[in-house]
């Protein structure tokens, strides 16, 4: 019986989170949300989800703590090096033909993907003409992305990934080590707009040439995936590119016909000409 009650509590908490703070997790894939909320309940010391909901409504301190459980934090620079290799070798030759470029990292979390793309574009000589948009719903994640500071013990993996992605420079050119942290060069984010943006509730804000949104959609249910992919379609310039995570696809969305596979193995799609 406990699980049935907990399911009701979860539904109510998500409703409270939306009505009180306009964070809408109601259409996130529920099995993961449940795991995260149960973990939050245990680690934040609440006996029930309902008790956590009460704190959420009445104590402003609870929201940021809960958001850190509900939003994805784990990533690494140049995660899936073959994705960046495909961008470098197949996508950037197309982008090179534009005088100015806009790139959107949707769900940028702590910024690892942003710095990876910024380094890639600099290596390929496209950084001066590119404006990056890094968006997330979690203000703490956006602050971390803007800071560009990562634990030094992760940098070995970042470096290995960067080399595998066909990196033309050394990753160490872009950061200074400081008390166990790698502080990335602020010039990498000089042309970046950091912004609070929700794929659930917000709209198109610019015309993009490349959207990278990897391992975000797996946390959405099908209806929400449809909304996000529709938003990507409407945000992309004609023949613009969309990069998804290695286990994400457009197969189960109603917008599949709006995109053509470009590098199928790397889940890179190109927007078709509008009908």
């Amino acid at each position: 019986m406990r699980d049935v009650i907990e399911d009701i509590e979860i539904q109510l908490l998500l409703e409270a989170l939306f009505q009180r703070y306009h964070y809408d997790f109601r259409h996130y894939a529920r099995a993961s949300v449940k795991r995260r909320l149960v973990q939050a309940r245990q680690q934040l010391g609440f006996t029930t989800i309902s008790a956590m909901q009460e704190a959420l409504l009445h104590d402003a301190e609870t929201l940021p703590r809960l958001l850190n459980y509900l939003t994805v934090q784990v990533s690494e620079m140049f995660r899936d090096p073959s994705y960046f290799k495909a961008l470098r070798e197949k996508v950037l030759p197309h982008l090179r033909t534009y005088p100015s470029l806009k790139v959107w990292i949707a769900g940028c979390s702590n910024g690892e993907e942003l710095y990876s793309l910024s380094i890639l574009f600099r290596e390929e000589g496209l950084d001066q003409r590119t404006l990056f948009y890094a968006t997330d719903i979690n203000p703490a994640a956006l602050r971390a992305a803007e800071a560009g500071v990562y634990p030094l013990d992760q940098v070995r993996k970042f470096t290995e990934n960067h080399q595998k992605s066909g990196g033309k420079t050394s990753l160490s050119d872009y950061y200074v080590a400081d008390y166990g942290r790698a502080v990335f060069d602020k010039s990498l984010r000089a042309k970046t707009v950091f912004s609070d943006h929700s794929l659930v509730t917000d709209a198109v804000f610019a015309e993009m040439h490349l959207i990278s949104c990897r391992n975000v959609l797996i946390y959405f249910d099908r209806a929400l995936q449809d909304r996000a992919i529709g938003l990507f379609r409407d945000s992309l310039a004609r023949q613009g590119f969309l990069g998804l995570g290695s286990k994400e696809s457009l197969r189960f969305t109603k917008h599949a016909a709006s995109f053509a596979p470009f590098v199928p193995a790397e889940k890179i799609f190109q927007r078709r000409e509008a009908a």
């Binding site: 894939a29 993961s32 795991r35 946390y219």
Partner: peptide, 21 residues
């Protein structure tokens, strides 16, 4: 389950993948 992803079942009998810890 794919390597390096959690495999979950949703209430409606569909599958979800996740990169949670």
């Amino acid at each position: 389950a794919p390597s390096d992803y959690h495999l979950l079942v949703e209430a409606d009998g569909t599958l979800s993948l996740s990169l949670d810890e």
